Each structure stands twice: as structure tokens, then as C-alpha cells.
Simulated assay, not measured.
Amino acid sequence: MVENRRYRNLLAYLVLTVGVVIVAFPVYLAILASTFDAATIINGNMPLVPGDQAAENYYRTIFVGASRTSREPVGLMMMNSFIMAIGIAVGKIVISILSAFAVVYFRFPLRMTAFWVIFITLMLPVEVRIYPTYKIVADLGLLDTYTGLILPLIASATGTLLFRQFFMTIPDELLEASKIDGAGPFRFFKDTLLPLSLTTIAALFVIQFIYGWNQYLWPLLITTKSSMQTIVIGIKKMITTQDALTEWQIAMTTAVLAMVPPVLVVVFMQRLFVKGLVETEK
């Protein structure tokens, strides 16, 4: 019995190791490519050990940009992506938690109808509403603005459902105790619900930050200025159809830099992220 369990553990570790290698090896190649010059990468002679061009490549990528394609420095693109991701994450959390609070703790006509209308939007792909959304943003003069990048994406049916399910697990005795103490709805929300929701907020923040950081279609539609490009669009535009014009070392450096903020968010908020998902399921 012990031997069988040992073999099963070995098999599990072997499968996990193979999976990690499959996922991590392309990332490792991107990191390696960011330390070589373009000729080494294009000729296919890149070794599996780091090169000596890392400092030059990263400095040029962050502060200078790709000269052959006249792209903006990646530092500016990362700032645009960071502002967009933070705005979307915070906006979704604020709207979702207030919507869930209203649905769970207030009794008003068509309360559940409003919730199910919000829930049904989960079944609609982004492409269905992309044109009317773009038309509204264009009519309001929000093209090439941070408001135009953030505002249409801050509504979240997923976040509303997540907070609603969590609020329904909170005992009614807490609400009754708040009423006895003379606390109104806002004070109950601020002093009781918000502290209890910190782990759920953290979990949703991680998910929505990555969602906002990886946005491609929407920024591609509403940004026409190079100064408003996000880093995901920048990577795509750096890779041209002709290899002679593609500065692969800059593209790979940009790809590595694009991975850093989401990874840092997940690493620093990992404990709260996992705890928030587990508590929400309960």
C-alpha cells in the first residue's frame, strides 16, 4: 500500500514537472532572447545560456524604443497598461460590491430581475457589444483617453455574482446587531461588510488586474496615438511581416517586461487571492 502511494506520488510529480517545463520553456526562451542581439536570434544560433546584451536591450526598450519601427518607449506603454489595469480592477470592484450590496440587503421592486439581467450579460461575448460601445465612446470624444480605455470595461457581472454569493453567507445577526447599535446602511457597509470582504476584494482585484493588463481588442480600437498604446498592442506592432524589420531582441524584451506586473501582483497577493476564492466558495 505504501509502495503504491509512493509510485502515485512520483507519477504526480513527474506529470507536474512535465507541465511546468512545457509552460515555462517558452518564457525562458523569451528571457534568453532579451539578452542577445538581433543577428544571433535571427540566425538561429542562440545558445541556452544568457548573453551579454541584456543591459543595453532593456535600457533601449524602456527608455528609447524600437528605432526601426519608430515605436514609443515601452516604459510609456507599461504606464498606459498599468493605469488601464488599475482603473478597470478598482472600477469593477467598486461597482460590483455596491451592486451586490443593493441586491442582497435592500428590498425594492424587480430586485431579482435586475440581478438576472446583470447575470445574463455573462452569456454575451464582448464582440456583440463592441460596436455600440465604440460608437458611444467616439460620440463622447473619449478616443485616445484613459477614460475611454477604462470606463466601458468596469461593469462586471462576475464580480457582482462573486460578492452576492459572499454576502449571502454573512449571518443576518450582524445586520440586526448593526441596526440595534443605530448604524445605517452605509455604516453597516463600511464598518462590517468591507472588512469581511477584504479577501474577496483581493481575489477579484488579481483577476481583474490581469484581465485589464491583457486587453488587446478594445485598446486597439480606440487608440490611434502611439503615446496611448498599451504594451500588448506594442508587442504586436513590433513584430512585422518582414523579419528584416523586426527587432526581435526588443520584442522579446518587451514580452518579458509585459509579464512582470501581473506576476508581481499574483506573487504579493497570492495568499489573499487563494483565501478569497476558498471563502467565496463556502
Rank of each mutant, 00 (worst) to 15 (best):
M1A: 11
V2S: 07
N4P: 02
R8C: 04
L10R: 10
V15E: 10
G19W: 10
V20S: 12
V20T: 11
V23W: 15
F25L: 13
Y28A: 11
L29C: 05
T35W: 06
F36R: 06
F36K: 08
D37L: 00
A38E: 15
P47A: 00
P47E: 03
G51D: 00
A54S: 01
A54N: 00
A55S: 10
N57F: 13
Y59V: 09
T61C: 10
I62P: 13
I62M: 12
S67R: 13
R68V: 08
R71A: 07
R71E: 14
M77D: 07
M78G: 04
A85I: 02
G87S: 12
G87M: 14
K92H: 11
V94W: 11
S96R: 01
S96N: 01
I97N: 01
I97D: 01
S99K: 05
S99I: 03
F101P: 15
V104C: 05
Y105W: 15
F108D: 04
L110N: 12
F115T: 02
I118S: 07
L122R: 11
L122H: 07
P125K: 05
I130Y: 07
Y134L: 11
L140W: 15
L142S: 04
L143F: 06
Y146R: 07
G148A: 07
L149G: 10
P152N: 05
A155T: 13
A157Y: 10
A157C: 06
L162T: 09
F163V: 01
F167E: 12
I170P: 14
L175W: 06
S178H: 03
K179E: 15
P185T: 00
F188R: 01
D191Q: 06
L193T: 04
L194P: 13
L198D: 03
T199Y: 12
T200C: 02
A203Q: 06
A203D: 08
L204N: 08
W218E: 03
P219R: 00
L221P: 08
S227Y: 04
I233F: 01
G234T: 04
I235K: 02
M238Y: 05
M238W: 03
T240D: 14
Q242M: 02
D243A: 08
A244D: 13
L245Q: 06
Q249I: 01
Q249E: 15
I250K: 08
T253E: 05
L257I: 12
V260N: 10
V265M: 04
L272K: 14
L272C: 04
F273Q: 09
F273G: 07
K275Q: 15
K275E: 15
G276F: 13
V278T: 07
E279N: 01
